[in-house]
Write a protein that binds this DNA or RNA. Structure first.
Lengths: 125, 125
DNA sequence: TGCGGATATGCAGGCGAATCGATGCTGTAG
DNA sequence: CTACAGCATCGATTCGCCTGCATATCCGCA
């Protein structure tokens, strides 16, 4: 993986050109595909959903293994991928590791997919 | 794959619950992941982009192999996956097969990802 | 009817990913 | 200091997917 720790930056500060407009660059396609690939998994979608709907918008690994029916290492693995993609952020408090959604990360992805509106939050290069 | 020909219906008439709100169902997660998986590939993202930005919003296979640098069978394969996911529609005119974007398929996916607004297009069960 | 071009399909090699058990690491409690 | 609980990492296995080559199929044309 060369996404480790960088996918977030490329996401929240997207040099990635949206699907709209002119033909997408090969490099941009690979970056966007990389983030989408993190989303394109049932277990990870459910993880995001579970965390987002948790009491304080956060959850630790021990709360997530049971609902998913997956082993703890596997859940930890998925959380790692989501974090590296810039979708989750991790905070360790004591023995527990709490994960929460990165505020508008998913919304940013959605914006990259939809052509219609103009994204005013960036200078379009 | 049991998505063949059905993913479109489940997409444009989404019984799929969005990522927002309460924890997503396992079946819904798998359906959404299935569609996202079709998107999560550099070659397919570029295909969508190329077709979308083509003169009449449509393109045939022969126009797409060169820009991608992939073989004709491979391009045909990707177009098949996108079509089965409900993102593209195929129309055969003579010897050529023209592909075009399904009107609001991608926008529907984007809506499923973003929590904010309420989608009025469905009765929320 | 026979030929040639445009696509689709079958088959197979190779790489990446999902999963789990075992293990290591790090705080917390006693 | 020791024991234990919560997580991350490692190694191995299985599975799915991307790609190309070869081939089949379909259609228009002579």
């Amino acid at each position: 993986m060369d996404f480790v720790g960088t996918a977030l930056a490329e996401l929240t500060m997207p040099q990635i050109s949206p699907l709209a407009g002119e033909p997408i660059e090969k490099a941009d396609a690979e970056r966007l595909a990389g983030v989408l690939k993190a989303l394109a998994d049932p277990a990870r979608l459910r993880l995001l959903s579970l965390i987002q709907s948790a009491p304080d918008g956060e959850a630790c690994v021990c709360d997530l293994t049971a609902p998913l029916g997956l082993s703890q290492p596997t859940v930890s693995h998925h959380l790692r991928i989501l974090t590296e993609a810039g979708l989750l952020e991790r905070e360790k408090r004591g023995v527990w590791a709490y994960y929460r959604l990165v505020p508008s990360a998913i919304a940013t992805i959605a914006d990259l997919l939809t052509p219609p509106r103009k994204r005013a939050t960036k200078k379009t290069r």
